[in-house]
């Protein structure tokens, strides 16, 4: 479904990604793991179009997204929940969610999708008239995921959705990701909770200093010695 081929990306002179190639197949959950500054977020930003790669291609269903600006990629079904949630803090929860359905593909079904999001996250329904900036961290993350779902994504990219959340909320978010995936949405997940991410995901890619160093079935990686030493503290 989604393929990256030999991506090189830079911030100024600083190389963030080097020859990264990876694939996300229809219906999968793929976890992207690695240390800080390994290039995980950059990978997502290249896919969503916020960062233009210097070399390499991003392909969606074999169509090159090279000339497609970020805002048009949403209409093709690529939707990113950015790191730090990035809600519109001075707008209400409902306004945030409605903005999620800005893309043409989502506009017609807006009300139905909204009902679905409120069903998935009842707390958002209760707080719909509250300013998004006044929500707790967990609620904000739910609002950010809900807003992304409003765009009716084919592939949902989540950047550190559990960062800074209490363990019970972390479990809740992971459970939600599983539910969303079971409803037919492909998921690309960037996570620091490596063990939980690998338990949830079908496959995983490991980035190190901007390079893809390991790729495989999540279950097998969970038993991989290198990964254990590096990220699971075993």
């Amino acid at each position: 479904m989604l393929r990256l081929e030999g991506i090189d990306a830079f911030y100024g002179d600083l190389q963030a990604l080097a020859k990264v190639s990876l694939e996300v197949r229809d219906g999968e959950i793929v976890a992207l793991v690695g240390a800080n500054a390994a290039g995980k977020s950059t990978t997502l930003r290249v896919i969503s179009g916020l960062v233009s790669p210097r070399r390499g291609r991003v392909l969606l269903d074999d169509a090159d997204l090279g000339g497609v600006p970020a805002y048009q990629r949403v209409d093709r079904g690529i939707v990113q929940v950015p790191e730090g949630r990035r809600l519109f803090p001075f707008m209400t929860v409902a306004e945030n969610l409605l903005l999620g359905a800005h893309a043409e593909r989502a506009r017609g079904d807006r009300d139905r999708t909204l009902a679905h999001v409120y069903e998935l996250f009842p707390v958002l329904g209760e707080r719909r008239t509250q300013l998004a900036g006044s929500l707790s961290g967990g609620e904000q993350q739910m609002c950010a995921i809900g807003r992304a779902l409003m765009a009716r994504p084919r592939i949902l990219m989540l950047d550190e959705p559990t960062l800074g959340l209490a363990p019970v909320l972390v479990a809740r978010i992971f459970e939600t990701v599983r539910t969303i995936n079971s409803q037919g949405v492909t998921v690309l997940l960037v996570e620091q909770n490596v063990r939980q991410a690998l338990t949830l995901a079908h496959r995983a890619c490991v980035l190190e200093s901007g390079r893809l160093v390991l790729e495989g079935q999540a279950r097998e990686l969970l038993g991989d010695d290198r990964l254990k030493r590096a990220y699971l503290g075993l």
Binding site: A70, V74, P82, E95, L99, A151
Partner: peptide, 22 residues
């Protein structure tokens, strides 16, 4: 909706882009 889109862009341009806003 257009007003909401304008306010959203003011509050967070990148997040607005990720909502498909030009």
């Amino acid at each position: 909706h257009a007003g909401r889109v304008m306010r959203a862009t003011a509050q967070d341009r990148d997040a607005a882009t990720l909502m498909g806003i030009d």
